[in-house]
Write a protein that binds this DNA or RNA. Structure first.
Length: 268
DNA sequence: ATGCCGTGGAAACCACGA
């Protein structure tokens, strides 16, 4: 068996599905293949009542979700332990109606599932909204760390943290995913004491989680690393493996993102 | 360098994504 380990692992994944109903067959195929314990989904692009709960349940997962008509939408799935929802709104702006955050406790671990705004075009109100959302996330993240419990902030951050995370950095300098303000915001967040799990286990390696639909981006490996796992110190200590299921990006009717995952040593 | 692709929703085009 290729997949045989000397420890019991907890596998957590994140997947921007780009429309959960349009991608349902891809999602279910991947869930069966990868068998993650916890999954954070982004870009459901469906209102609450159109979340395919029965199919997700039939695949072996409980779910909580925060839907929205047409855009955004986030969900957390769990294969084993129950999900105890903590919040479904990022604090700090009561006027913000976009479904971009949901948080739950699963097996004593806090999972914050997020879909950070894209922010394009720069300059403009969307970019300002992104920076403000980042500030709110950073403030909330600080509170989570202060609670001194195992926490993971997981999802589509819409940021390439460094030049290593972009196939052609020079072309992205003025893009809202790579503007220095946004990279700086990501670094400020990480410097609170979070671990960028993929980067820690694969330093110096080219890792992408997204490839455009056009210009044969996937075939050319013209990708971006924008889906991330930020781990508190408790989880960092348990981190064993991490990767990208990049082959899923090659499937028919697939999302432009690939699923990303980590494995944690199980708690004693 | 660019929405050339793809989704959802409303209305056979538009908003939005990264």
């Amino acid at each position: 068996m290729a997949q045989s380990f000397h420890y019991d692992a907890v596998k957590i994944a994140t997947y921007n599905v780009n429309g959960i109903n349009g991608r349902l067959s891809v999602l279910l195929r991947w869930l069966k293949e990868a068998s993650p314990d916890i999954v954070c989904l982004q870009e459901l692009k469906a209102p609450a009542e159109k979340f395919p709960e029965k199919m997700i349940n039939a695949a072996g997962y409980q779910a909580i979700w925060h839907g929205q008509k047409s855009w955004n939408g986030v969900a957390i799935l769990s294969r084993k332990g129950p999900l105890q929802e903590l919040r479904r709104v990022l604090p700090g702006d009561p006027a913000d109606m976009q479904s971009r955050y949901i948080e739950a406790i699963v097996n004593d671990t806090v999972i914050g599932c997020l879909y950070l705004p894209n922010g394009n075009p720069f300059p403009g109100p969307k970019f300002e909204y992104k920076l403000n959302w980042f500030k709110r996330l950073t403030a909330h993240a600080k509170k989570l760390l202060a609670e001194d419990v195992p926490v993971a902030l997981v999802g589509d951050f819409n940021v390439m943290p460094t030049e290593l995370d972009v196939y052609k950095p020079e072309r992205w300098l003025n893009d809202a995913l790579f503007r220095m303000e946004v990279r700086t915001a990501f670094k400020k967040l990480v410097d609170q004491g979070w671990t960028d799990a993929l980067r820690k286990l694969h330093p110096g390696e080219t890792i992408y989680t997204f490839w455009d639909y056009f210009r044969n981006a996937y075939e050319r490996n013209a990708g971006l690393r924008i889906d991330h796992f930020l781990l508190s110190a408790h989880l960092d200590k348990r981190l064993r493996r991490a990767g990208v299921d990049r082959h899923v990006r090659g499937w028919e009717k697939t999302s432009d993102h690939a699923p990303v995952w980590i494995e944690l040593k199980k708690r004693n």
